[in-house]
Design a protein around this nucleic acid. Structure first.
Lengths: 139, 139
DNA sequence: CGCTATTATTTGATGACTCAACTACCATAG
DNA sequence: CTATGGTAGTTGAGTCATCAAATAATAGCG
């Protein structure tokens, strides 16, 4: 994880959480998520998400949209610039994953590892896809 | 990791790094290590270690000793109280590891996991010993 | 010996997170 | 309608790490 963070930061000025935020938003319906759901996905507190999105909004990678049905909620929305950034950063991300994991394990072993980790509580995080030929949400 | 931290903190007022520090010191020759070697083991910067040890010294779990041969180095030394604390905390640690990992995998699978992780760069951290019946440095 | 580079450590500033407290809103039961 | 309780989000204070710079000592080369 450390190395992913470093490379993303160096090459795209993104933290690992910045990247994951863009990734989750890009996969969500209409590129939008409630901040609180984002918090859960990222394993952050709502407070942490507020500050994280402060940064992403400031550089125009995400925006906000009010919910017409519930005035409490604000949606975070990925922007066109955000999607573009995600496409670039995904290459870096995939490359580092491959370098860190994929290149050290055969496809079979990778799947084994994924299975074992998936069996652990909270182990649903490990995304084996992105560790070899996988392009995580490059679309 | 999150859960380990929480339980150690709740039951012994120790952070995960506090615990690991005591563990490494207890295993070292004379219960002493140079601060910089400790930094490497803990994957912290020297700066981080300074602040971490500030806390442990304040509550008397570690002490410091000058190196007679090199005035630049200070050894961090585990105290008797530190060893006692480590014995207690190790039980908690082992219990949480078992709960989190050991109880979800068979011994064979645990070893498989350990092997796979060990093959990864920096994967020498995972200590399969402590995840089932293992008592990590309870001596 | 004297200079330079390297090593061990500490300090100050900063960043990213947490928690606790607060605001604002929604839902429901009377 | 109104009080009660739960949910979404922000803010302020504190924690734990980092980096960059400063200090002090050592090592080795001329």
């Amino acid at each position: 994880m450390r190395a992913v963070e470093a490379r993303l930061r160096a090459e795209h000025r993104l933290s690992a959480n910045d990247f994951e935020t863009l990734l989750h938003l890009s996969r969500a319906e209409h590129g939008a998520m409630r901040r609180i759901d984002l918090a859960e996905r990222l394993r952050l507190t709502p407070s942490g998400v507020t500050r994280l999105l402060d940064g992403l909004e400031e550089v125009g990678l995400t925006g906000r949209r009010d919910c017409p049905a519930d005035a409490r909620v604000t949606y975070s929305v990925i922007t066109a610039r955000g999607r573009k950034m995600l496409r670039l950063a995904s290459c870096t991300h995939a490359a580092v994953c491959e370098e860190l994991i994929g290149s050290h394990l055969s496809p079979t072993e990778l799947e084994e590892l994924s299975d074992l980790l998936g069996r652990l509580p909270g182990g649903d995080d490990f995304d084996a896809e992105c560790c070899s030929a996988g392009t995580a949400a490059t679309g």
